[in-house]
């Protein structure tokens, strides 16, 4: 056996079974989902095997004219999901960015402790972390309880089952995703450039906008993408904190599969979520290959 055949054999042993597994159970399902999104929904659930592009039309409001009239409800849900996901990204960034500066200046020991404390929630149960916010935000929740007791309000505020509640919940669970990439670029920041800028007479605002912001931008972009992707298609947070109405794409997809039983339409919606993710990922990878290294968040 010469060296090359042996190498090939080793490589095949290492990657063969895995490739087969991913081809069948990862690429296969995605392919079938894509096919389903172009099929017609059957009357009693299930699918009809002929080409039917109206699932995608329906998202935009232009559905099969034989059945439906123009109805922009789905595009409204899509835009609303985008808005909520974008707000989540902005708030998460505002929460994490300043803290990253402070933590990057701590001593080695405290830095490590802080990073441990920030990553730790990522490992705790997601549903438990959301449950905590239900207890805080609901009508008889702790925040209302405290506000009533101190006399600041005389009627409980409606905080849960609002978009605000969804955003708070998402910010809470996505903090580690944003913090790690942002921190990585803040930590690498060359402070001598900041000092040079100040010595040359630039004010704090200008120094921030011209030096600090551009240098930490890779982390900001990376963190934003990593938060935006799971926020857009999220269905647990709106289901727990967002009340009964269909709030976001994730709930709409769930509904198509578990109650409406319109799998082709659900698949088309999932294709939409997936394409947004692929487009963002493409930009992320391109930016990363341009020299800025962003590590995976908290993993």
């Amino acid at each position: 056996m010469n060296l090359q055949t042996r190498d090939r054999l080793q490589l095949g042993t290492l990657l063969g079974p895995l490739s087969l597994f991913l081809a069948i159970f990862f690429l296969g399902p995605l392919f079938i989902m894509m096919v389903t999104s172009f099929l017609a929904p059957g009357l009693y659930g299930g699918v009809e095997w002929h080409f039917y592009p109206d699932n995608f039309g329906r998202i935009l409001g232009f559905a099969d004219p034989a059945f439906e009239e123009y109805d922009p409800i789905y595009i409204a849900i899509f835009l609303r999901s985008i808005r909520i996901a974008a707000l989540t990204v902005i708030v998460t960034l505002l929460v994490c960015y300043p803290a990253a500066f402070q933590i990057s200046r701590l001593s080695e020991r405290w830095k490590n402790i802080s990073l441990f404390l920030i990553t730790l929630p990522f490992f705790t149960s997601l549903i438990v972390r959301l449950f905590v916010w239900v207890l805080l935000l609901r009508q008889t929740g702790l925040i209302n309880e405290l506000l009533l007791k101190t006399g600041l309000i005389n009627r409980p505020l409606e905080m849960i089952y609002t978009d605000g509640a969804i955003i708070v919940g998402m910010v809470y669970i996505f903090i580690p995703f944003m913090f790690m990439p942002v921190y990585a670029s803040v930590e690498k920041l060359d402070w001598s450039l900041v000092r040079a800028s100040q010595d040359l007479g630039a004010g704090p605002v200008r120094t921030f906008l011209r030096i600090i912001l551009p240098l930490t931008l890779p982390g900001i972009v990376g963190g934003s993408i990593i938060v935006f992707i799971p926020a857009l298609g999220n269905f647990v947070v709106p289901a727990v904190l967002g009340g009964a109405k269909v709030q976001m794409l994730g709930n709409l997809i769930e509904q198509q599969f578990l109650s409406a039983r319109n799998w082709p339409f659900g698949s088309a919606l999932a294709m939409l979520v997936m394409s947004v993710m692929l487009v963002l990922l493409f930009f992320y990878v391109r930016q990363e290959s341009r020299g800025s290294q962003i590590p995976a968040p908290g993993r």
């Binding site: 991913l22 989902m33 857009l232």
Partner: peptide, 16 residues
């Protein structure tokens, strides 16, 4: 697979 939104992977596997 790690980056794929949960819901997409979930329903793709369900259909499959």
């Amino acid at each position: 697979p790690m980056l794929m939104p949960d819901i997409v992977l979930g329903i793709a596997l369900l259909i499959f």
